[in-house]
Design a protein around this nucleic acid. Sequence first.
DNA 1: TTGACTGGTAGGAAATCTCCTACCTATTCT
DNA 2: AGAATAGGTAGGAGATTTCCTACCAGTCAA
Lengths: 114, 114
Amino acid sequence: MTRNAAAGSAATDVFAALANPTRRELLRLLLEEGPQPVQRLASHFDMARPSVSEHLKVLRDAGLISEHRSGRERHYRLEAAPLRRVRDWLTPYERFWREKLANLRDLLDEEEPS
Amino acid sequence: MTRNAAAGSAATDVFAALANPTRRELLRLLLEEGPQPVQRLASHFDMARPSVSEHLKVLRDAGLISEHRSGRERHYRLEAAPLRRVRDWLTPYERFWREKLANLRDLLDEEEPS
DNA sequence: TTGACTGGTAGGAAATCTCCTACCTATTCT
DNA sequence: AGAATAGGTAGGAGATTTCCTACCAGTCAA
């Protein structure tokens, strides 16, 4: 029974993948420090390594990272492309909040004309 | 025990609020159709009204909507400002995926020089 | 005031998430 | 070959999410 008539559900949802702070931190590490093996990623967290592996699986399923094997290591690399879905979703709201800001500025100009 | 050393946790996390497709749909309705009472929002979903109320509470806690009472109705209005946090988070990745696209284009140019 | 209507909250069931400790395979080193 | 290392998977505990059905208070219309 598909109970979400709403939207989204890719194979796995990018929004859901981003909901967890540990996973956002993993993406940040990959962005700032480049591709790296699991242990190096895991060393940043106060969490058992298998748990990090599971977060990596969620990110992989969402297409946000890719795996590249090198000997017994597996290097994970950021794949930022799916984030375009988020950006695209965000765009119409951006226009909205800009208008609000403009309205606020107009209001301030009215009330306190220099 | 705060177990997320990572990041994020505002009063309630905007990312977490966006993780649910029903809540994203609610935001879309408020964006496209403007402020409206709960029943009109709920009519779009195959879900009991109290459940919609709970989703609205999550959005309210994340600062994404505001409530305005008018008689026995409560009109909910989109408050897009917290989405800037998402936008700001996204920005460095945007640069990254643009570079990747540029690299791909360069590669194509090399392999198939017109 | 009574009855209908709007919408929040309580309590609970079921599903899902997040973490853990084993445990497994594959690779590398000696 | 045998030991050590990298990292995935299984199974499960506990927390959280998501939905439900009552049930409640406030507002409006008769």
